[in-house]
């Protein structure tokens, strides 16, 4: 479904380039939900922008459904972290959700009425039908992010990219939104790539957790999440498997190796743990 091969990108002027992501290779299967987690500055957002076709990578390639990505492909939708800025304040909630239906190709309603119907249907998915006439800034942060999710779903995407979608809402809302994504996933045939810095979240929602190293971003580990479905905020989080996996991801994000545990570097071909990481004492946690 999605194949990322040797993806490399750097920023800055020639001579003083800063490598953001370094030879990332990743395959995502149809209908999978892959969490990408890593410390800040690991190039998570750069990776997502390259996959979305918003950024031309310096090297490597992204292939979606057999077609190389060189601009924003059809059937792709994005949810940004900064929902309050990504929703247009001059459009009503309904018109915001209907906006992507105007763009691109693919099977989309062509009439105004059809677009509005699709927007209302998408709002119903996230439980916000009665806010259609309001402006986004009249809603709470959690509701605004729901609108952003509805907007992404309105054009019936095959691939949904989410860039720290729940990074700026309170804990309760965050749990609701995580469950919303899981519900959407169960109901639709959709592949999701979710970037987060929250270790718990990456395990809770993911079928797989991909851990990136501190910049330049490289894949440190690619761990399957073997937890029963449907997941539940209370019971899933108290499972021994959840606690264990969370600890493992946490160590990987902090650049440590679990004492006596498997070495993550062995799991992914081409993954290189930099000398700085190896020399770091395993028991001193890195903030």
């Amino acid at each position: 479904m999605l194949e990322i091969t040797d993806l490399t990108h750097s920023y800055g002027p020639p001579g003083d380039r800063h490598l953001a992501i370094d030879r990332i290779t990743l395959t995502v299967g149809e209908g999978e939900l892959v969490s990408i987690v890593g410390p800040s500055g690991c190039g998570k957002s750069t990776l997502l922008r390259c996959v979305a076709g918003l950024l031309s990578p310096a090297g490597g390639r992204v292939v979606l459904g057999g077609v190389p990505v060189d601009r924003v492909p059809d059937g792709l939708a994005l949810v940004f972290q900064d929902y309050s800025r990504s929703l247009l304040p001059w459009l009503s909630v309904r018109d915001n959700v209907a906006l992507p239906l105007r763009g691109g190709q693919g099977r989309k309603p062509r009439s105004r009425a059809g677009r509005q119907q699709a927007a209302i249907a998408a709002l119903a998915t996230v439980g916000l039908t009665d806010t259609a006439q309001k402006y986004p800034w009249q809603l709470s942060g959690g509701m605004q992010q729901r609108v952003a999710i509805a907007r992404a779903l309105a054009c019936d995407p095959v691939l949904l990219l989410m860039d720290e979608p729940f990074g700026s809402v309170d804990a309760q809302t965050r749990e609701d939104l995580e469950d919303l994504i899981l519900a959407v996933r169960r109901e639709r045939d959709i592949t999701i790539l979710l970037v987060t810095h929250d270790i718990d979240e990456s395990v809770y929602v993911g079928d797989r957790v991909v851990v990136l190293s501190r910049g330049p971003g490289q894949i440190r580990a690619d761990l399957p999440v073997d937890l029963p479905s449907p997941r539940d905020q209370i019971t899933t989080r108290e499972l021994a498997a959840f606690v264990h996996l969370r600890a493992e991801v946490g160590r990987l994000v902090r650049g440590q190796q679990a004492p006596g545990d498997q070495v993550p570097g062995d799991q992914v071909p081409g993954d290189q743990v930099r000398p700085a990481d190896e020399s770091r004492p395993a028991r001193a946690p890195q903030a």
């Binding site: 924003v72 800025r85 105007r102 763009g103």
Partner: peptide
């Protein structure tokens, strides 16, 4: 953020002018 959002929707130049 708004510019990138609208780009991600693949709106035409005319639509970007009118909507954004």
């Amino acid at each position: 953020v708004q510019v990138e959002t609208v780009r991600a929707f693949r709106l035409t130049a005319w639509q970007r002018l009118i909507r954004l």
